[in-house]
């Protein structure tokens, strides 16, 4: 349940933005969670909801953008969706060396304040 620690970190960041922006309330929070980040979006949401009670973010809508895993071929540069781990090879040129291009994201993207 490391989502709790990550949600704590996210809430701290959100409230810091709200404090700096002298906001009365946080309206909306957008976070990006990659499919390979090791964080389960539902577990994150559950933890975040439990933590934000009685804070300025209590009533905010929380949008979680789930970022699919993508790979980039080191040989030909092709980008493609990765379903299984690891990528197994480039579908364009058959190259074996594939980097993770997306899916590791774990970010607080935007915070809407009023």
């Amino acid at each position: 349940m490391h989502e709790l620690g990550i949600a704590e970190s996210a809430l701290r960041a959100v409230l810091e933005v709200a404090r700096k922006g002298k906001a009365v309330q946080v309206r909306r929070v957008v976070v990006r969670i990659g499919a390979r980040s090791g964080v389960e979006p539902e577990a994150f949401r559950f933890a975040f909801d439990a933590l934000r009670v009685d804070t300025r973010a209590a009533g905010a809508a929380v949008d979680v953008e789930c970022i699919p895993a993508t790979g980039r071929c080191e040989e030909c540069g092709a980008c493609f969706a990765v379903s299984d781990f690891p990528a197994g090879g480039c579908p364009a040129c058959g190259g074996a060396r594939v980097d993770v291009a997306g899916g590791m994201e774990l970010e607080l993207k935007t915070v809407d304040l009023v």
Binding site: S9, E16, K22, R27, K109, T110, V111, D112, L113, V114
Partner: peptide, 28 residues
């Protein structure tokens, strides 16, 4: 102790979007 985050846009009463774009584990 946590390091400070980039400041938001102080516009009282108006809805503002703050582009934060920090890693959730930024502090870590």
């Amino acid at each position: 102790e946590r390091p400070p985050l980039p400041p938001g846009d102080p516009l009282p009463g108006v809805e503002v979007r703050v582009d934060v774009n920090v890693r959730l584990l930024d502090a870590n």
